[in-house]
Simulated assay, not measured.
Amino acid sequence: MSKSECAVFTNMCMLFDDAGRILVQDRKSKDWPGLTFPGGKVEKNESFVTSVIREVKEETGLTITNPQLCGIKQFQDKKDARYVVLFYKATAYTGELESS
């Protein structure tokens, strides 16, 4: 029995400000529609923190600093790969919000 398996690492980040406003995306994708937080896949040789900063920048135009890990979820996809989702939260950011 093998002790290794295929795993895909992903992230999501809840961005919020001092007024309690939370940034969400309204996805129009047929594969995964609805409200979600910005995020995506961790690239090969990329750290988890670097990946969430990059994904938020790509999807929102905002550069977050000091993202805090606040949860982890895992599930198996239909091809039997394990997906690991790292959930972050952040309150510090710079830039102008852009629609993706």
Rank of each mutant, 00 (worst) to 15 (best):
E96I: 14
T36E: 11
K41A: 14
S100C: 13
K89C: 13
K78H: 07
S2W: 12
V84R: 12
T65Q: 11
E59C: 03
L15H: 02
C6V: 08
Q68W: 08
C70W: 01
K41D: 08
D31N: 15
F9N: 02
G20R: 05
D80V: 02
R27M: 08
L15S: 07
T60E: 11
T36M: 11
F37Q: 01
N45L: 14
T91N: 04
L86N: 06
I72S: 10
C6D: 03
W32E: 10
V8T: 05
K44L: 09
D80T: 02
S99F: 13
A19F: 00
E46G: 03
I72N: 09
V8C: 00
P38I: 11
C13G: 05
I72H: 08
K78C: 11
W32T: 07
A7W: 06
A81Q: 15
E46W: 06
L23Y: 06
L35A: 04
M1T: 05
M1E: 05
L97Q: 10
V84I: 15
Y93P: 05
G71R: 07
P67Q: 09
T60N: 05
S47E: 13
G34E: 11
R21E: 03
T50S: 13
V24C: 14
C6K: 10
I72A: 09
T65D: 11
L35S: 00
R21A: 04
E58N: 10
G95S: 08
P38T: 12
E96H: 12
K57R: 13
C13R: 00
N11I: 02
T10S: 06
C6R: 06
E55Q: 15
C13M: 00
E98P: 01
T10H: 02
Y83Q: 05
M12G: 06
G95D: 04
F87I: 01
T50Q: 12
V84G: 09
F16G: 06
E59H: 11
F9S: 07
F75N: 07
E5P: 00
L62E: 05
E46K: 09
A19G: 00
T60F: 14
E96V: 14
M12W: 03
K30T: 10
T10A: 04
F16H: 14
L15M: 09
F75R: 13
E46L: 04
R82P: 00
T91K: 10
V24N: 07
R54A: 09
F87C: 09
E96Q: 14
K3F: 15
Q25A: 10
T65V: 10
F87G: 01
A90T: 06
A92D: 15
P38Q: 09
K79T: 01
V84Y: 09
G34P: 06
I72Y: 01
W32I: 02
N11P: 00
K3G: 14
S4I: 12
Q68N: 08
V52K: 05
G61K: 10
G71F: 09
P38G: 11
T10N: 02
G34S: 03
E58M: 07
V49T: 15
L35F: 14
Y88A: 03
S51M: 08
